[in-house]
Amino acid sequence: MPAEIQSLATHDAPRESRRTSPPLPEPRGTLSRLVVDTLRGGGSPGPLSLDTHDADPYGDDLQLALYLLYELHYQGFDGVREDLEWDPELLGLRRALEGRFLGALRANCRSTDSAEHALAELLVEPVGYSRTSVGHHLQRDGELWQLREYAAARSLYHLKEADPHAWVIPRLHGRAKAGMVAVEFDEFGAGRPEEIHAQLYADLMEDLALETAYGYYLDAAPAEVLATVNLMSLLGLHRSLRGALIGHFAAVEVTSSPGSRRLAKAMRRCGAGQAAERFYDEHVEADAVHEQVVRRDVIGGLLASEPGLESDVVFGIEATGFLEDRLGARLLSAWRDERSALRTPLEAAA
């Protein structure tokens, strides 16, 4: 190994959550069992036929099955053949599950007339305390165990932060592409591995005495969490949904700065630690920039060249809000009853 490569490798190498792939999780019903068994068995001997029509599109079973199939495109699973990512039987099953999920989302989103109006609703801040906001709750009343649950649940996304959105890049051009790449560059640490947002999140988890290995909290994550991550993968993997992916990304960036401020305060108030504060402090500042670039250049550029995508941009914004609200309701209802919001409570912090 050349000297400079070696010195970079040994100098302050950050703990990497993605050095290994996670084990396959426990199935949550017939669909997810079929996927787990097929992955474990090295593929399907014949066509995978299973009726998906009765499956709850937001339920644990369908969401986990879809999550497993999507995860083949990111980090895979321990002991699972990597080339199953492009297995036609599994892709066929994925398509059926996606159809259920996407159909339900389209039916549940009310479709505002313009992207500008859909964004305008996100560009205002409530005065005072909002009972339905997880961030407001954590800032004012959150307890450390709730912050740990929140961080564990969100780790399914944040340990691959901005990855699902990178898939849209080859589908963009001009202003939209330049803007999207600039924001993604920032998400990926602007050239410094220790500043990759996913790494900042692993550092936050460390402060909260959580396990930082990729996918560790998959079994603990309820369907509402899986659905938020599946939405990104769904929109990212389909070129036909590029408008919705951009709408989704804009919704995340626009709401992130004030939301991160509340979480930074929650972390400070509970004494979570410096890295925990840092992750959210960084997002207050970064996302105040990102939302501007995404609105002006990414959405502006995309709709200037492809005006027909406006309703998809709106759909992406609304589907994001819809799934975030469902997740928020799940977390808050459990925490208000002093119950764990996860499927399996966390081990106590050491």
Partner: peptide
């Protein structure tokens, strides 16, 4: 609150009825 950097505090604020059901 992170001056000189924008933290989106310039946004319009909406008053909501604290006592209204969610």
């Amino acid at each position: 609150r992170t001056y000189p950097w924008c933290d989106t505090s310039h946004r319009r604020r909406v008053r909501r009825d604290e006592n209204a059901p969610p």
